[in-house]
Write a protein that binds this DNA or RNA. Structure first.
Lengths: 213, 213
DNA sequence: GAGATATTAGCACGACCGTTCGTGCAGTTT
DNA sequence: AAACTGCACGAACGGTCGTGCTAATATCTC
């Protein structure tokens, strides 16, 4: 039978798989997915090279699994915490500030994982780029949906171009991450905080909305 | 004497150095500076590995030379063309649109060279990151200076925060490049064009300024 | 218990890496 | 013509890469 019987072997296997991926996302956020090497991961974790290799089957599969793992971490760190904020302008703002907090806290040691690896793979066709493009769309859609809810609930003017606004917000966030990491400064985050408030106010029905205080 | 006598040998040497760097910036804009391999450059150009190596002395020196070469190309492609636009709001706008044209035209095959390699090295201390941080500051300063001239000439309101505005403009440009390359679309450039006009208008003394038509 | 199964280790492979060395050759200087 | 300079060459170094094998070990089924 193929029921979900608890199998200690596969459990142990998944455990080491997770350990490998935990290490992999950290490395990749600093040095990129190409810098992931099976031998290095094995050495770092006290495993054998072939043991690590067996868990993924190929380097590209390891890279894809690393992207999926990072996607989960991102969702938990950025999107999940704002789930309890009621939909509307306040949640849209909270989402952006959650992203800034995620970058600032170095959930990934190299800053935003996706900024790093997207720049690495955006011009290289293949499954990895496709996966990253999917993540980017997903995040963009999340922001647009939050803005849409804000418009529906009357926080944003009906003629607001949600795509443009989401683009501008994401641009500010990513650039804050980039400059903060590159120059090892906090100032870009403060600048981004000011700017995203101004962007939201510019589209708000009531610029004095308490959600933008 | 150490006069500038024409030496055919060193001339030939510089020529191959330039050929190597021309190839190197192209590769690095797509795959990153780490993907530069001396052996691959040699094969591609029909040279010997040791010949290429001798021209730079180390891989890191090759990477630094590649960054310097890209900096020159960037300056020629983006900054130089707007030199004949009179300082002011029009030039600030021209500078941004020159950047968009540079990304759109794939002056570097992977899109903006600096977006790619800055993401690669921003979390890795060392001479390469320092060089890239310098380039980033230089470009940021160029934008700020253009905005400052626009403010001085009355195009922008006196209370405009130039740092914030430059940050927002650069954010829009870089994100347009990133999304256009990642999804292989033109739409991000159009969005960016609209957004940067709106950003400049928001700081303009006269939102109907013909420079923003 | 026995036997099936899946994770991990050990080892070897071919390829490529950056780097060093000694040599040849073209151009410059004397 | 001889001495010197500097680019480029080919070969080789020690390492690391991803990827296959085989063997050992631990767990589950019966």
């Amino acid at each position: 039978m193929a029921g979900p019987t608890t199998d200690g072997r596969v459990l142990r296997g998944e455990e080491t798989r997770r350990a490998v991926l935990r290490r992999a996302v950290s490395i990749a956020s600093v040095e990129g997915l190409d810098a992931l090497s099976i031998g290095r991961l094995a050495t770092d974790l006290g495993l054998s090279k072939s043991g690590v290799f067996a868990g993924f089957g190929s380097k590209e599969e390891l890279q894809l699994a690393t992207v999926r793992a990072a996607r989960r971490i991102f969702a938990d760190a950025v999107v999940a915490p704002v789930a309890d904020v009621p939909p509307g302008l306040a949640r849209a703002r909270a989402l952006c500030e959650s992203w800034l907090a995620y970058s600032r806290a170095r959930v990934f040691p190299g800053g935003c994982f996706f900024y790093e690896v997207t720049a690495e793979f955006d011009a290289r066709p293949g499954p990895v780029r496709d996966a990253l493009a999917g993540c980017a769309r997903e995040w963009s859609d999340t922001v647009v949906e939050a803005l849409d809810a804000a418009r529906t609930t009357g926080g944003l003017r009906p003629d607001t171009d949600l795509g443009d606004l989401a683009f501008a917000l994401i641009a500010v966030l990513e650039t804050a991450n980039s400059q903060a990491v590159l120059h090892d400064e906090d100032a870009p985050y403060e600048r981004a905080g000011r700017l995203l408030l101004r962007l939201l106010r510019a589209g708000a029905t009531d610029p004095a909305d308490p959600a933008l205080a």
